[in-house]
Design a protein around this nucleic acid. Structure first.
Lengths: 262, 262
DNA sequence: CTTCGCATTCGAGTTACTCGAATCTATTTT
DNA sequence: AAAATAGATTCGAGTAACTCGAATGCGAAG
């Protein structure tokens, strides 16, 4: 009767939510949901009943399950409260002014980067991107900036995975390892059409008080008007911003009563 | 040992998430969380352990609980999949072209409207608004457009609540009831600085196949450059769009094999 | 009309949750 | 520097609430 240290009900409920999320546009039936989450149909039904009432899930006219609006409300709240986002905002706006291009803010989750903010330039040929979307660590500017600062075992773990070759320029293996060393020296990362053809980015890491990379931001633009040289020209000022943001989060010389975020 | 029809664990877990959400910027301690959710501290701790692992919650450096990035990922997924949003998008973009002002899309949740999309005009004096935010039904253009089409008992229910007087122009009681009748005749709603001083909006309802208002969109602009007359001039074209969107969602003459959303 | 798939209900069995108290840890006070 | 305080975490007993498979209900398809 040893009590575990976490709640299996909660785990399974979110397993169900994840399953619905992965199902995508077509939705998913109760039976499929139960199979995917590894519980009996009746159990899934019970959870789903609660989740529907909470509007974490919805049902479409065909009776299939979809994600619900509660998630939007919670996400909106998260964005309002997020310290990193609040600290970074003014810098991102300034960087958009400076570069005239779109700037993103992201945080690492697992072996991916999740976009949590975007500031668009007026002239932007709309690059597809949306808050909440995820991108790999190994082939994006934000991802590589973060990856370079992770501890060696974690880096090895990521390198050992199957790394998607998104474009002909995507780096893997020793090339990627060398790139990460370069990034550590430079302090910033360049994505030279490694994630998407025709898109070039500069990415900077943000560290917390423990020195861990807790986020990153990047400037993205069509390769045609954003050369490698442009990237290098922009980098020093962006790096100064990254350092500033990290300091505000407590990284570096530990100052008692340092300016608190918010 | 009668099995209930829903899962109390799931309910309580989301009670905890809601408590964290309401706590806002300051975060919330485990003890406060337990009290707010009505469970023992150790129970709350167990749930929280799972929620942290799932990154539905996070802890700040002070040890207080905050919302986590998983919510952003799920919300992003929801936005990608949402049928209403997909159908409405091109219309909203056209409406921005037409009006030169900011357009919002929302859905009713409880007695509020939740913003699920926003298309901004280039010239916009940035009106504060964000996806995931909520607004009351009684004093916004989207809210009144939806409210007018709800069934009478529900309308009474909303009218009977304490309706916040957001500005001197906010309508309540019989004035609001008369306004709703007008909105039903016109097909659209005008928010004449009833929610926020200096902001005027036109709102249109979107109906599903059962005729229920499942969403709304609105054009918002500073009152100085968006007169009541402007609202009325814009309304017919916006109304045509609203009707179109509703039809695509199945409202009105049921056409077999009608053009499917997505 | 029959068949099929899926949603929902039901009841037995037992896992996994709930609670209060004890312990540990970090921060604040004297 | 030591003590006091507040909160986080662990622990163990007891049982409420969950899990499962089978039976039933419902609607769509053949």
């Amino acid at each position: 009767m040893r009590s575990g240290r976490k709640s299996s009900s909660v785990d399974k409920a979110f397993e169900i939510v994840a399953a619905v999320s992965e199902a995508g546009r077509s939705g998913i039936t109760l039976g499929a949901l139960a199979a995917r989450a590894g519980v009996a149909v009746s159990t899934a039904h019970r959870y789903v009943t609660s989740l529907l009432e909470l509007r974490v899930l919805d049902r479409d006219q065909a009776g299939c399950y979809r994600l619900g609006v509660t998630l939007i409300m919670l996400a909106g709240q998260y964005l309002d409260e997020d310290g990193l986002r609040a600290v970074a905002q003014p810098y991102l706006a300034e960087l958009v002014e400076l570069s005239g291009e779109t700037v993103h803010l992201g945080v690492p989750v697992g072996h991916q980067i999740v976009y949590i903010d975007k500031v668009e330039s007026a002239k932007s040929v709309r690059l597809v991107s949306r808050i909440g979307n995820r991108a790999p660590l190994h082939c994006t500017a934000m991802g590589k900036a973060v990856l370079a600062l992770l501890d060696p075992p974690t880096i090895d773990e990521v390198l050992a995975e199957h790394l998607d070759l998104r474009t002909p320029r995507t780096l893997t293996g020793d090339d990627l390892l060398a790139e990460l060393a370069l990034i550590r020296r430079q302090g910033f990362a360049i994505d030279d059409e490694e994630n998407e053809e025709g898109v070039r980015c500069v990415g900077l890491p943000i560290r917390n008080s423990a020195g861990q990379p807790v986020g990153a931001f990047s400037v993205s633009a069509p390769a045609g008007r954003f050369s490698i040289d442009d990237c290098h020209r922009l980098a020093p000022r962006a790096l100064a911003m990254a350092t500033d943001i990290s300091h505000r989060l407590g990284y570096g010389p530990t100052v008692k009563n340092g300016s608190r975020p918010i």
